[in-house]
């Protein structure tokens, strides 16, 4: 009786062992990568002492600077635009009376999460190729459009979750207290929605920043982002400089995801 109520998976035989193996297999390679980013030698496998040299070198590398800057530009643009669209979609799917096709719209917004990325990438490649042929335009627009598109469902999820957990009576109360629909939105809905919007923004930012497959296929010549640049480097000589770039990149991602976690958690 007493034990049935508080079953704990922790007490199962071998649980601890399995957990440790899981964590080790997940994090050992990453840990190794970070450790060798501080290698004084040129090998990514033989330790020759501690040094910041690869960080310094990466920092001074113009190609890295350019790619990192482009990545940030694309991620910022895609995150902001995608979050705006996602916010509108989330409001339309939660703050209206259920209408015909609501489920279809919901599915439509979320399908990109299920379509294999390589399929999206090839589809975009072919689609944009025909536009390139027709217009001759080869600018950054394709990457911006592509990133915005695949970021929308990621931005949509936390915003929708936030809207659904909000008490609808608050908006009713605002209307009761003479707020027009627009003012009820700006004074009550939006302030309460901010954690969701910030969450969506950061999630979209990270997703855009990390993307390789779609970027690789959509980008025009000379439009390397940090991940595609790194991928390109691995085809040549591999030095701990790659480790250093990866470590910084990892740090930024972890930072943003952690911020996202706390922002969406705490305000509830």
């Amino acid at each position: 009786m007493a034990n049935a109520g508080n079953f704990s998976v922790r007490r199962l035989t071998g649980f601890t062992t399995i957990a440790i193996i899981c964590f080790l297999s997940l994090y050992t390679p990453i840990l190794t990568l970070v450790i060798f980013s501080f290698n004084a030698g040129t090998s990514i496998a033989i330790w020759e002492g501690f040094s910041w040299r690869w960080y310094e070198r990466a920092w001074a590398n113009e190609q890295v600077q350019e790619a990192a800057l482009r990545s940030l530009q694309i991620a910022s643009f895609a995150a902001i635009v995608a979050t705006t669209f996602a916010t509108m979609a989330a409001i339309a799917t939660t703050r209206t009376r259920p209408f015909r096709g609501l489920t279809a719209i919901y599915a439509f917004v979320n399908t990109p999460l299920m379509v294999p990325e390589i399929v999206t990438a090839i589809a975009l490649l072919i689609f944009f190729a025909s536009i390139k042929v027709a217009t001759g335009y080869t600018g950054l627009g394709y990457l911006l459009a592509a990133h915005t598109a695949f970021c929308i469902p990621f931005a949509y999820l936390p915003i929708r979750a936030r809207l659904e957990s909000m008490d609808l009576t608050l908006e009713t109360a605002a209307a009761d207290l003479y707020a027009t629909p627009w003012r009820a939105f700006t004074r009550v809905t939006l302030p309460l929605l901010w954690p969701g919007i910030i969450g969506g923004l950061m999630l979209a930012f990270v997703i855009s920043l990390d993307d390789v497959v779609i970027t690789e296929l959509v980008k025009s010549a000379g439009q390397e982002t940090l991940p595609t640049y790194m991928l390109g480097q691995f085809r040549r000589v591999v030095t701990p400089e790659m480790n250093a770039i990866s470590a910084v990149f990892l740090g930024i991602s972890i930072l943003i995801v952690t911020l996202f976690f706390f922002l969406t958690r705490k305000r509830n």
């Binding site: 008490d167 009576t169 608050l170 009713t172 109360a173 605002a174 209307a175 009761d176 207290l177 003479y178 707020a179 027009t180 629909p181 009820a184 009550v188 302030p191 309460l192």
Partner: peptide, 20 residues
């Protein structure tokens, strides 16, 4: 008339105070 145009106010069962 929509609610914001009625000179009538409501005390809600859940109070519905604005938390922010």
């Amino acid at each position: 008339l929509p609610p914001h145009k009625r000179p009538v106010n409501t005390v809600f069962q859940s109070y519905a105070l604005f938390p922010h």
